[in-house]
């Protein structure tokens, strides 16, 4: 922890950690479903600790195509995620406190890994729900699967499915971008200056 940087980078790292901690109070991701009969739309919100939104309605509709009921208790992630994420946020504040480049590197790597693992996990769940359909379902469309998109919109029969980060996710993402930016602009610049 020899390399110290300017006060402003410490502030930015702290802001980044604060933004990341917002995910404890705000939803991370949302899946939207729109259909002619649902002009107001149906919504599934994914939090660090669970699910909310029109789960019952979505399950009610999904049973026609034989999709498994979405039940919060089926996800081990919601039990573990708050702790892992908590460690990461804590590491952010520690990094801000010591304002060290080395710690910042570790932190940014943790963040990126968390994002990659999280999104992959999300994709795998979507795949599982969209493909493992009961063969006795009332509505069977040959060749049709119902995996929602990872990001963006996709038409699934009469439903337009959308998948986007929610406020908590956007704040966390912004926090991550700030952390990376601090690493590249402030700390790298600082190292160069030290060399001169």
């Amino acid at each position: 922890m020899k390399t110290t940087t300017t006060q402003s980078s410490r502030i930015f790292i702290a802001i980044s950690a604060i933004l990341l901690s917002g995910a404890y109070f705000l939803p991370l991701w949302r899946i939207l479903l729109e259909a002619p009969q649902y002009p107001e739309g149906l919504e599934l919100k994914i939090w660090l600790t669970g699910l909310s939104g029109n789960i019952a309605q979505i399950n009610g509709l999904n049973h026609y195509i034989g999709m498994k009921f979405i039940v919060e208790a089926d996800f081990w992630e919601f039990k573990l995620m708050p702790y892992i994420y908590g460690v990461i946020v804590l590491l952010g504040f520690i990094t801000a406190y010591f304002n060290s480049t080395k710690l910042l590197w570790i932190w940014v790597i943790c963040l990126v890994l968390f994002a990659i693992v999280g999104l992959t996990d999300f994709y795998l769940w979507e795949y599982a729900y969209g493909h493992n359909l009961d063969p006795r379902a009332a509505i069977k469309v040959p060749g049709m699967t119902y995996q929602p998109p990872l990001f963006g919109y996709k038409q699934l029969l009469n439903f337009l499915a959308g998948s986007f980060p929610d406020i908590g996710g956007i704040l966390a993402g912004t926090g991550g971008v700030i952390a990376v930016a601090v690493l590249f602009y402030k700390h790298r610049g600082r190292t160069k200056q030290t060399k001169q």
């Binding site: 999904n62 049973h63 034989g66 009961d134």
Partner: peptide
Amino acid sequence: RLGENPVKEQ
């Protein structure tokens, strides 16, 4: 009775 529903809440 009611026939068995393949998809339901556990």
